[in-house]
Computed example of a mutant assay.
Amino acid sequence: MTKLLEANDLRKVFGGAVRAVDGVSFSLDERETLALVGESGCGKSTVSRLILRLTDPTEGTIRFEGQDMGRMSQRALKEVRREIQFVFQDPFSSLDPRMTAGDIVTEPLAVHGLIKGRAKRRDTATDLLKTVGLSAKHVNNWPRQFSGGQRQRLGIIRAFALGPRLIVADEPVSALDVSVRSQVINILQDMQEDKGTAYLFISHDMATVKHIADRVAVMYLGKIVELAPKSSFFSAPQHPYSEALLSAVPASHPDKRRERILLQGDPPSPVNIPSGCRFHTRCPLAQELCKREEPPLAQVADNHAAACHFAQAWPMRSRVADTSASGP
């Protein structure tokens, strides 16, 4: 069965020295949500731009429904872009302040020649706005007249206007209040159920990821270091960096609280990536082997892969908690 999206060994080097993405591979099925998580600067947003062909990879391939996007003509690429849409992090800066809400949500249809005439455009805009809880009275409003949550709803329905197969959502709720965040996540899930769309959901918020994702891919310094189904990732992470990320998630009950793991220092620069495991400079479990050899992303359980030399040696949570107790 052909995957909806396949990224193979993606690399992106800026300025000949900055390895922003350094050998990333993953796939995405129809109707699936893959969450791409990690600290700021790990390469998540660069991956999203590579998938959308907003920037070209230095190496690697991207296939959509089996077709190599790097070999497509501009005409073929335009057709594929109808099937892949984007939801931006900042709902205000992503909307043209000179356009009304109606024009914003129907612009993709006009660009692709799918809608003509002012009356038809207004009717279509009204129908689209209603699907995200807005109404006909909002059609002629300007972006400045909406709240942050309403603006993000505009961004979401604009992305869905063409009926895409895949939506890349880059931190789509990080700028919103918690209550509004929940509303927007529910809209995304309802739209996915109704339209069958797949999501590449980029985030640093593990609580949101736990709510929306089917699988989780953890990035660190340009590489995926863990890739797993949501259930096994949250219950039994196999990389110490993943465990540190999860330890910062508020627990729903005191008995389920993880001991907070405080990593020392900042991530190394992508200009000067450490030898061996690129996490060893901050890892509480690092040994001499980690400094010499880079671990591959390998299967450690059913559909669960991790790039750690000692992923299966003993329970990750207990050994990270033990070593972190003496940390700063």
Rank of each mutant, 00 (worst) to 15 (best):
I224D: 02
L263C: 05
D9M: 10
H253E: 07
M72E: 10
L52R: 04
I115S: 10
S174C: 03
L128V: 01
R81N: 08
A217W: 03
V300L: 10
T106S: 07
G38C: 07
K44I: 12
F201I: 04
L221R: 00
E39C: 11
K223C: 03
E288H: 10
R278P: 03
S326K: 11
Q183E: 09
F14W: 13
L227I: 05
Q299K: 14
T61K: 10
I273M: 08
I62F: 09
G38H: 04
E65R: 15
P143F: 02
A228M: 06
S242P: 11
A301E: 11
S93W: 14
A313N: 15
K130I: 06
M69F: 04
P274Y: 08
A207G: 05
L129P: 06
S147A: 08
R118D: 10
P250F: 01
I51W: 00
S48F: 00
F201K: 10
K230Y: 01
I261Y: 04
G23T: 07
V168T: 01
V300C: 11
D190W: 00
A20D: 05
I84P: 02
V13W: 10
R292Y: 05
K120I: 04
S179I: 02
L297R: 13
L28Q: 06
S247T: 00
N303Q: 14
S182H: 12
T100V: 13
P250Y: 02
E32W: 06
E6K: 12
A175V: 05
Q189W: 04
F234P: 03
K256R: 11
I51P: 00
T106M: 09
E79Y: 09
D96V: 07
R81L: 03
S147R: 09
K120P: 00
L134E: 04
F310A: 05
D56K: 15
G43P: 05
S324I: 00
G102E: 12
T131P: 12
S147L: 08
F14G: 04
S252D: 07
N141F: 11
R53Q: 14
R71I: 11
E293L: 14
T106C: 11
S324M: 04
D127H: 12
V47C: 04
S73K: 11
L263N: 07
G43T: 07
I167F: 01
L54C: 08
Q192G: 03
Q299A: 15
Q287A: 13
D255W: 01
A311R: 09
T126G: 14
S324R: 01
A7E: 01
I273R: 07
S231Q: 11
G148A: 06
R165F: 06
A217I: 05
S269P: 01
S48T: 07
A248S: 14
D266E: 14
G41W: 13
P328Y: 06
Q312W: 04
S73W: 10
A244I: 00
G102L: 13
